[in-house]
């Protein structure tokens, strides 16, 4: 059997306490603990540590706290929907407003054709950029890797 140092046994002690060792390793650790007072003390100490950390598990939310957290979370969810609708509405109305306000410009025969083409291309460009921006936001949301999560 391979001889291990106490330090190596202490690493194995973790697997021992967590129930992650096979029968052979377990027997080896037990044998060492019986013959080594230091490692035996370490075992007791880590058992205490594990119990202490486990104490965090006894905490639960009270019903009242849970009600409050639910309300807060739902409000935030609703607000998210609200902002999305607000943004979509704002873009539509702005586009319509700009078009209406410049209607005269498009039908005015004294404005040279080249200026109208220039303004039209510029406006179209802004619209394409805006749509692209919105689409990127939506795509980004979908691609935020929530499906690749390890479980």
């Amino acid at each position: 059997m391979m001889l291990r140092s106490c330090e190596e046994y202490r690493v194995l002690l973790m697997g021992y306490l967590d129930g992650e060792l096979d029968a052979t390793q377990r027997a080896e650790v037990e044998k060492h603990i019986h013959s080594c007072a230091d490692c035996s003390a370490e075992r007791g100490s880590y058992e205490n540590l594990n119990r202490m950390v486990q104490a965090m598990n006894t905490y639960t939310e009270s019903e009242r706290a849970l009600d409050r957290y639910w309300q807060q979370t739902w409000n935030r969810a609703e607000r998210g929907i609200g902002w999305f609708l607000f943004g979509a509405g704002a873009i539509l109305l702005t586009g319509y407003g700009v078009f209406e306000a410049s209607r005269e410009f498009w039908t005015d025969p004294t404005v040279p054709l080249i200026v109208r083409i220039g303004a039209g291309a510029g406006g179209l460009g802004v619209l394409v950029l805006l749509v692209s921006l919105v689409r990127e936001r939506l795509m980004l949301r979908k691609k935020e890797r929530y499906t690749e999560v390890e479980r």
Binding site: Y69, T73, A77, R141, E144, Y146, T147
Partner: peptide, 16 residues
């Protein structure tokens, strides 16, 4: 924790 649940609500269609 609330952010995690908001993500669940928004992306529930992406959770198997």
């Amino acid at each position: 924790a609330q952010n995690a649940f908001l993500k669940l609500y928004r992306h529930a269609d992406r959770v198997d």
